[in-house]
Amino acid sequence: MLSLNRVSKIYSTGTFGGKEMTAVRDVSFDVNTGEVVSLIGESGSGKTTIGKMILKLIDISHGSITLDETDISAVRGSALKSYYEHVQGVFQDPFSSYNPIFKADRVFGLIRSEYFRGVAASEWSDKVDAAVRSVALDPGQVLNKYPHQLSGGQLQRLLIARALLLDLKILVADEIISMLDASTRIDVLNLLADLKSRGMGILFITHDLSLGNYISEKTVILRRGAVVEMGETEKVFGHPTHPYTRLLVSSVPQLHKKWTQIEDELEPPIAGTGGCPFHDAYPLAGHQGVRPVDEPTLVEIEEGHFVGCFELENETSRQVA
């Protein structure tokens, strides 16, 4: 449904914009109907940039993003408005997503004035009530309140409810759990899983591997703007192959295992030759920069499990054997 095809983003930096910084490099993946794809990476890995490109908040430098075969970079004017009917985002900090001087349910009113002008008031309030109920909130408790009267988890769920009012196909969820407390974060996570079963495609952007693993069908691991490993979640976490993925998996703090034990129990990589499986398959490929269009960026090491070049890893000081 949503498809990224060799997307790159180059920012110009420096005082007069003289320097270039590649934030996202040759990223390709799909988000299908009823699927949660988690996009995992450290800060600065370009995961939010990808989310913003999908939401058309920033332009794409190279490559293309298509929604149902339509290139989104050409979408403008009224077509853009209907694009936002299908694609919405929810962001990390729920408190800064609301205007503190208006009541929180103003976000619903804005949707109505943009998209549902013809709908009668009673019908609209039924629709809002249904959306609020579907995110497991009680409309009587949360509507007609100011943002500071609600908790972070409630605000975050209201934003999801707002997105549900539209005929949504893709939800970009950018670190929506990170600011929430342990006791409420799991409820928001379960809510995402419900939405998935209703046929929505969700791009779940996170730095937390355990959250990504809990909910997603597919996992994409980013490092410095490039995909280092991606594929079905069980395969990526079951047989982490790229040294960076292995470092990440072994660094996740777990509740019933110490770090040293996790390292010992890590499955050996599939392509156990010790070398870089990408260059084993494509010996002539270059190491750095945006690759030529005819050159692949990943190699398939087992069905539905792709790994990128190991060379990107050279600068990391701590390696996991």
């Binding site: 342990a182 409420t184 959250l211 976490f237």
Partner: peptide
Amino acid sequence: SSLPEVGVRYADKKLTGI
């Protein structure tokens, strides 16, 4: 018990919050 861990999947075991 409300903490998701690596290895716990929504499909296998649904966790609950407080």
